[in-house]
Design a protein around this nucleic acid. Structure first.
Lengths: 362, 362
DNA sequence: CCCTCGACCGTAAACGTTTACGATCAGTTC
DNA sequence: GAACTGATCGTAAACGTTTACGGTCGAGGG
């Protein structure tokens, strides 16, 4: 190969210096004694390569540890190579496992994930996150939007790529579609369990109504009650903290208005309630039945072990990624939400007739 | 959710909306009436461009919503533009907040983060993760390696870019350096608290010795005891689950060997212990003092509220990113670990003289 | 008036791929 | 034996930047 008309592809500026530089497609080609075009073909599993040649190239790739430069690939094929995830900074998330599961599915499908946090759930912050992701060249975005203000921000933002929102019970728009677990069903399951146990006075110590989860769980509670011909009783709305629940519980016992049964919006809520009751001699489940929601780690070792609702975050991640990739590739994909399951333990028990009242009183 | 919401700022930011294609540096140049070289200069804050021109170019960039193509940039300058994070799939992680904090710091420093999960803590899995990250062109990698087998895998793996491991008490090597919170100090704090309360019979219900956290917390317990002239008592090693702790607790009460005080390796461990004791009439803290580790959400509403040790994951993320970026840019950076803090609540109390024994015996 | 010098700006080449197209060379077919 | 046909392979031209270098132009020194 003399200097005459060195074709563009050959590595001219480095004879055989063999620096620590990453090998390129040309290095492979040269060693394998083919042109870089051929190497590209084997890289992309394209036809028009003989088995023997393919084998040889593959061998060289293996030997010198060649790895395709993603930037170059991304540059020429605008085909996206990664997926963006924007997560709120909020602590009340699914476990890290959710994120990991998301990544896992994406990787198996050949996409890298880059996650980015929205500093606030408002428009500029969300738009900034979306833009940053767009820069990177993601092919689609999943935003975890537990809070309604964040969802609103997403609806108002603009983005060139498909955006999927994980937000329980939020509505889809043409440009932003939604996926989530069927938390309303979960709430109905929990409430129904209490109903089946014979309770009629079933209160709800709710989460924040700024959260979709809070809204949807409350809705499920109401729906179950109505379906059973019961009128929804007390509903206290707060935040998700054990502290708030504790204080709420205190008020209940002080006011002498502890209900027969409580559907707590989260396990942490249940935890606060239980402590407030325990400190005042109100026994769970003997005096009041409680069921929680989330099945956080350790809830099986609360005092008493908590009957609660479990969401399958891994399945959620799997499905939502399926949906997004489907949208990116223009495929249609089934979008029936995942169903949570009730896990019954010891915090809710059969209703006993209230003292001085006939049972089945209605 | 009425239709009042703007239907997702459709093309609002794209006035003339000529083509769907992203504008390039050439589009900007053409509209601004300069050459692409000039645009590149203003993009990079290079000198040799007059204030007037710079202003005009900036304006055009703003107007047409130009955003620099990262792939192209990455291709020509090999300067890294992102940071990789590999996390084990394990559930026993810090909260999502840790990951988010990591991302946050990185973004502020101008790096994107891409996280990837190692499917197993073994060598091929870890190496694969490292390779994938290398492909993407990250400038440095943070691996969260709680398990010793994973750390070993990292030590044995090869990687062209700086690798930082977050692993409590693991040693640094020339190629892989380590950062973490000072968990041994945390364990000593917890134990010392018990000692200060007058306990002399302080057992440790440990975590798994496959975890750095498990090893280091045990070491801290021993160290505190020795420093106080006490000989370490019972040490039961298990996993981190409440379940195992529960069963261990059961054995303790059945054997009549419940110690005076227990340093539990984690809050979940403490939770299991507490239940086992509660179910058998052993009162916490009256009969046995317990201090946990982690300060998980809700531990302040356990029965009783748990005295425990809190790690500052945000600070950890901040510092470790600082360290990594420092290494990437060849800077020296202070690497003193972060100190956890003891948060005292109600699960540990002053020692009472054992029945039938004189106090201050031994 | 020529030369030099900054300040400003344009241009070519390179980064490592993919894609479209053209070339070569057996083997077939007539 | 000429022309056609696949199968296999090589080549040029992009993709959107950055970098190194070269040019122009007006001002100022001699």
């Amino acid at each position: 190969m003399t200097g005459a008309a060195v074709p563009r592809g050959t590595n001219r500026r480095r004879p055989e210096a063999s620096i620590r530089r990453k090998p390129t497609i040309n290095d492979v080609a040269q060693i394998a004694g083919v042109s870089f075009g051929t190497v590209s073909r084997v890289l992309n599993n394209a036809p028009d390569v003989s088995a023997a040649t393919r084998q040889r190239v593959l061998q060289v790739i293996q030997d010198i540890g060649y790895r395709r430069n993603r930037a170059a690939t991304a540059l020429v094929t605008s085909r996206p190579t990664s997926i963006g995830i924007v997560a709120a900074g909020s602590p009340r998330f699914g476990p890290v496992g959710t994120l990991m599961a998301l990544e896992n599915v994406a990787r198996k499908k050949g996409y890298a994930t880059t996650v980015i946090s929205a500093e606030t759930p408002y428009e500029d912050s969300v738009q900034a996150a979306l833009d940053t992701l767009d820069d990177i060249g993601v092919g689609g975005i999943i935003v975890i939007a537990p809070v309604v203000s964040m969802a609103a921000a997403v609806w108002n933002a603009s983005c060139r790529v498909p955006v999927e929102m994980i937000a329980a019970g939020a509505s889809s728009t043409p440009s932003v579609f939604t996926y989530s677990e069927n938390q309303e069903l979960g709430a109905r399951l929990a409430t129904q369990h209490l109903i089946d146990l014979g309770h009629t006075d079933i209160a709800h110590v709710a989460g924040s109504m700024d959260w979709f989860d809070g809204r949807v769980r409350k809705r499920g509670w109401e729906a179950a009650l109505r379906a059973a011909g019961l009128t929804p009783g007390l509903c206290l709305e707060g935040d998700w903290t054990p502290r708030w629940a504790y204080e709420t519980g205190l008020q209940l016992v002080r006011g002498g208005t502890v209900p027969q049964a409580i559907f707590a919006a989260s396990d942490h809520t249940a935890l606060g309630l239980i402590r407030a009751f325990a400190e005042n001699g109100v026994r769970v489940p003997d005096d009041v039945s409680i069921v929680g929601f989330d099945d956080i780690e350790g809830s099986d070792y609360f005092l008493p072990p908590l009957t609660t609702v479990r969401q399958d975050f891994t399945a959620l991640a799997l499905m939502s990624m399926e949906v997004l990739v489907g949208a990116m590739e223009g495929r249609e994909v089934d979008r029936t939400p995942i169903a949570p399951t009730l896990v019954v333990r010891n915090s809710a028990t059969r209703a006993v007739p209230l003292k001085g009242q006939p049972p089945k009183d209605k």
